[in-house]
Design a protein around this nucleic acid. Sequence first.
DNA 1: TTGAAAGCGCTAACAC
DNA 2: GTGTTAGCGCTTTCAA
Lengths: 336, 336
Amino acid sequence: MQRSIRMKDVARAAGVSVMTVSRAFRADSSVKSNTRARIMKAADDLGYVFDSTAASLRSQRTDFVAVIIPSLNNANFAETVGGLSDGLAESGLQVLLGYTGYDIAAEERLVEQMLRRRPEAIVVTGGRHSDRTIRLLRAAGIPVVETWDLPDDPIDHVVGFSNAATTQVMVDHLVGVGYRRIAFIGGDRDGDTRGADRRRGFLAAMASHGLPVDRLVGAGDPPISMQHGADAMARLLDGLPETEAVICVSDLSAFGALAECQRRGLDVPGDIAIAGFGAYEIAGVCHPTLTTIDPQSRRIGARAAEVILGVLDAPGAPRRIAIDPRLIPGGTTRNA
Amino acid sequence: MQRSIRMKDVARAAGVSVMTVSRAFRADSSVKSNTRARIMKAADDLGYVFDSTAASLRSQRTDFVAVIIPSLNNANFAETVGGLSDGLAESGLQVLLGYTGYDIAAEERLVEQMLRRRPEAIVVTGGRHSDRTIRLLRAAGIPVVETWDLPDDPIDHVVGFSNAATTQVMVDHLVGVGYRRIAFIGGDRDGDTRGADRRRGFLAAMASHGLPVDRLVGAGDPPISMQHGADAMARLLDGLPETEAVICVSDLSAFGALAECQRRGLDVPGDIAIAGFGAYEIAGVCHPTLTTIDPQSRRIGARAAEVILGVLDAPGAPRRIAIDPRLIPGGTTRNA
DNA sequence: TTGAAAGCGCTAACAC
DNA sequence: GTGTTAGCGCTTTCAA
C-alpha cells in the first residue's frame, strides 16, 4: 500500500501541528487527552506507522541494545537473552540480536554492523575477541558488557563466571566421591572458547589432585551437539575402556554420550559415570538424570540488564559481576 | 569515547568532500582506488563508524528483513532463521529477529515495533494473527511471508505446510503397521497454534480410519517442553494404560514421554509406541530413536528468502510454496 | 571521478 | 498545551 503517510498527514487530518503529533506518540503528558485521542484516531484511520529511523536520527537515541550470542539454538544463551530482554523492557529498551555461529570473524563483522546502528549499549558473549573487535568496542563510547566469562582484562563491564574454575568444581566433586580415571570430552577447538576454557580448567584440576590427564577426547567444531558427544564417547569406550568417569563440555554432548552407553548396554553410572554442563532441560528429564552445573544463564542476562540500566543512568567505573554456577548432582554419577 | 566523528570529519582528514566519502563506503566503483584508500585510512585513524540510521533515513532503504518467531530456543525455528539469513546475506540483507513467547498480543506489539523500523520485508511464523496484526501487515506495503503453515487466506506470501495434514501422515503410518488405540499429547492451548492444528489433524485422521478419539492428553502452555511430555505420559499411563501408541506434539515432549516410560521400566515400543514431530537432533540420538516427521525447517527459511528476493526484485502475485514434511521411522514405533 | 545543494521524517529548543 | 524553526548525518540529484 501507500507507505507515504507521514506525521504531517496525521497532523493535517487531526488539525494540529506535527509537533503535537510527535508529542502524542510519546508518553508526553503535555498533550490534552482529547487532542491525543483525535490524533490517534486520525493516525489509525490513515494507517500511519511511526518512523523510528527518523526519530532516532534526530533524537540521537535508538532505544535498543545490541546482543551478540554464538548460536540461536542454545537454551543457555536463549535464557540469557530472555533475562536481558525482560530486564531492559521496563526502560523501553529493545534487544537487537545477532549470532556469530561461533566464528570470531563473524563476530567482528556483526559488532561493526551493530555499532553502525548506534545501539545504546552492546552485550557480547565471552571474553575473547579479535583485536579489531576490541578496538571497535572500546571506541564505541557506549557501555559494553562481556558475559559468560570473567576475563582478566575486560573491555568494560563483565557479568559471568570462570569456565575453568567451574570445571574444577566438577572435578573436585568426582574425585571426592572416589573417581580417579576421569576423561574430558570437548574443548578442542578455539572457536568454542568457553569449551576450551573448561578443558583448561580440567587439566588444572586434575593436576591439583595429582591425577594424570591422559583421557582427552576431541568433540569437533562447535556447536557441540549430542551427536558429537555420542561419537566422542564411542571413541573413548573403544580406546580407553577402563575410564571411570567422563566430564563433557555440555549437557548436550553428555546426553549423546549417555545414549551411546545405553546403546551398548552399559550401565551408567555403574560401568561409567557421566557429567555435563549447562543444566539444560534434558539433564533433568533423561534417565538417569545428568550430573551437571547450572551456570544461571537467565541471571547472567538479568544482571547484564541491571548493569546497562545502571551505567546509562549514571556512568561509572566498569563493573565486574561474578555469577556462581552451582553443581547439580544427578543419576549419571555416584554422588557420595 | 567521542562518538562525534562524522563523515565530514573523515572528508576533511582525507581532503575530499563528504559525498566522496559516502561513495567510498559503498561498493561504488566511481571512486578512484587510491582516493578510497586514503579515505579508509582516515576513517580508520579517526575511529569513524558509519551511521546507518542517517543513511536509512535519506535513502529510504534499511536493508533488513524483520523475522518473528515464537521462541528463540527452538531448533526448528533456529534452522528456519538460519536458512533465511544465509539466503538473504548474498543480497546484503540482514535479519532483525524478534520472538513472541507464543503470545499473540506480543506478536502484535512486535510487528508494530518492527514496522516502525521500516524493514524491506517481514516474515512471521504461522498463519494466525490478531486482527490488528493482519491489518498492519496488509497495509505495510512490503512483502509479508507467513511460514510454518499453509493458511487458506494468507496475508501475502506463504512458505510452509499443513500441520493438520502432516499429522494425518503419522496416523496413517501407525494405523498401517497395526496400532489402533492411539493417543495424542499436546495441542490443547490456543497459544500453540501449530500444536492445535496437529491435534485437529489427529482428530480428523482417526475419524478417517473409523477409530475413536478417546485419548487426548493436554500438555499445557507452550513452549511444550520435555517435562510437559513426561508429565503428560505419566497421566496417560495412569489413566489409560491400555494405550498402544502415542503421538506427541513435538520431539521434545516425545522424548520426555520416552524417558517417563524408561523410568517406569516400560519397553518402548514393546509396551507402548511413541512418535514425535520436528526431527530435532534428539530424535536421532536417543535410544531408541524417535519416529518423527521432518518439517524441513531450514528449507522453509531458504524458500522464504527466495520469495523475498524475488518479489523485491520484481513485485508480483502472492506466492504459495508448499513444503513436504517427511516421515522418519525410528525405534520408538514398530514400522512394519 | 568528484562536488554542492537540498532534503529524508522526525524532535530539540525555544516561544507563546 | 501547542506551534515554529532549525537540523540530526547521511544520500539523491544535478552539475562539472
